[in-house]
């Protein structure tokens, strides 16, 4: 869901999906609060966080839903795919299992999400090099075959986390601006630092 707003130029909803234990919650906390939690808890159901970003002259509120990874929670979590403007599918580069599940997650988002929703494939935990099970080339090939962007991140080292989200948001805006010409003025896309944006505003989503 991308909505034009009076105070925010846009409100967008994103979802984080992928197998259990791949680091979705820590990617979220790194992105929204710049925190990494070594005592991260199992996500039960869904978690929610927001962050305001500025792109060019546009202010944007990102609303991110972090979901439980265990299979049996899918009936609960896939309700959140509807209306999502984009999705990050996350796997753990040290877990072949989590990579093998990507196909199922893709299927899931295509079934329950809006048609043509932009997706970025994220290989997390690249700091654990010595435990790597999924070669970069394999992941890139898979992403290419499925027309996804691929990026490797480390929530622990705070590497590429910003970029992963920016990748996704850029894609969303690009596809959105083809429909709504007025947004084009904010291209080329430049992302500004979060520190300028530590304000909270009342926000109203207009559908």
């Amino acid at each position: 869901m991308v909505t034009i707003d009076e105070e925010f130029d846009m409100v967008i909803k994103l979802v984080l999906i992928g197998d259990t234990g791949v680091g979705k919650s820590n990617l979220l906390s790194r992105y929204t609060r710049d925190e990494f939690n070594s005592e991260s808890k199992t996500t039960i159901g869904v978690d929610f966080a927001t962050r305001t970003i500025q792109i060019g002259k546009k202010k944007m509120k990102t609303q991110i839903w972090d979901t439980a990874g265990q299979e049996r929670y899918r009936a609960m979590t896939n309700a959140y795919y509807r209306g999502a403007a984009g999705a990050l599918i996350v796997f753990d580069i040290c877990s072949l299992n989590s990579f093998d599940s990507i196909g199922r997650w893709l299927q899931e988002i295509r079934e329950y999400g809006d048609p043509g929703v932009p997706i970025v494939l994220v290989g997390n935990k690249f700091d654990l090099k010595h435990l790597r099970q999924v070669p970069i080339s394999t992941a890139e090939l898979f992403a290419h075959e499925n027309s996804l962007k691929y990026i490797e991140t480390s929530a622990l080292l705070n590497s590429n986390v910003e970029s992963a989200f920016q990748f996704l948001i850029t894609e969303i805006i690009n596809s959105f601006s083809q429909v709504h010409k007025d947004i084009q003025e904010c291209t080329p896309l430049t992302f500004e630092d979060r520190s300028d944006l530590s304000f909270r505003r009342k926000c109203c989503v207009i559908n």
Binding site: K41, I44, G45, V46, F48, A68, M76
Partner: peptide, 17 residues
């Protein structure tokens, strides 16, 4: 407001968390 966003922990973990 999706109900499951607040009910999941209440029901599954009996309010823990």
């Amino acid at each position: 407001v999706p109900e499951t966003m607040y009910l999941a922990k209440m029901l599954v973990q009996m309010f823990f968390g």
